[in-house]
């Protein structure tokens, strides 16, 4: 990581720890320097990470952080300790995750992450397809299912859904078309759906 910081001037790096034991931490890289970082990782003789195994997206929703603080207030002339809750909205983001391995040195993985600014309009990250050809279809898939726009991708079209489709189905807040009507043993969400379709007392 220090070598990477030395090789690419002005790079912003952040190391994200992994909660799962025995699994590698990941490296968050700013989209502006992502291509330079990737070229370094690929060509550095000590790393030679030439095999991009997996490219995927992750959708992190907007989270509402509730902070509870105890403050002393004077109420009715008596000083009391009162719990005060402040809500802070933390904007969510989309994340493109790359798993890099080295075929030459048979080592890895290095997990590289790029994050978008938010989930709505600033969804651009840099495409690594010019560096690793193997990312081509996977980045298209992430564009299709998550809506992350990869700048610099040679052929960014939808991969799995049809071209007229307008949503990004793998996002966590995607609402699928309500098209299954009958469930023999409804439960949970399906039960709600069944209730909406067949109101109590309605005759066929």
């Amino acid at each position: 990581m220090t070598r990477l910081a030395a090789a690419v001037p002005g790079i912003q790096l952040e190391l994200v720890p992994n909660g799962s034991p025995g699994n590698p931490a990941s490296l968050v890289v700013d989209p502006a320097q992502a291509v330079a970082a990737a070229v370094f990782l690929r060509d550095d003789p000590g790393l030679l990470l030439d095999h991009v195994s997996n490219v995927t997206g992750v959708d992190w929703l907007d989270t509402v952080l509730k902070e509870t603080t105890r403050v002393k207030q004077v109420i009715d002339g008596v000083e009391r300790e009162v719990e005060q809750t402040t809500e802070r909205r933390k904007p969510g983001y989309l994340e493109a995750v790359y798993h890099l391995f080295s075929m030459a040195r048979k080592q890895g993985p290095v997990v590289l992450r790029q994050r978008t600014a938010n989930r709505v309009d600033k969804v651009h990250v840099a495409s690594l397809t010019p560096v690793f050809r193997g990312a081509e279809f996977q980045e298209r898939e992430v564009f299709d299912l998550f809506g992350i726009v990869f700048d610099g991708h040679p052929d960014l079209r939808r991969l799995l859904m049809w071209d007229e489709f307008q949503d990004h189905p793998m996002r966590k807040d995607y609402v699928e078309p309500d098209d299954y009507e009958y469930e023999p043993t409804p439960h949970d969400e399906v039960l709600d759906k069944a209730r909406r379709h067949y109101p109590v007392g309605a005759t066929p």
């Binding site: 009507e181 009958y182 069944a194 209730r195 379709h197 067949y198 109101p199 109590v200 007392g201 309605a202 005759t203 066929p204």
Partner: peptide
């Protein structure tokens, strides 16, 4: 769609 009468 199959006609189902729900009595709940």
């Amino acid at each position: 769609p199959a006609a189902v009468v729900r009595d709940e």
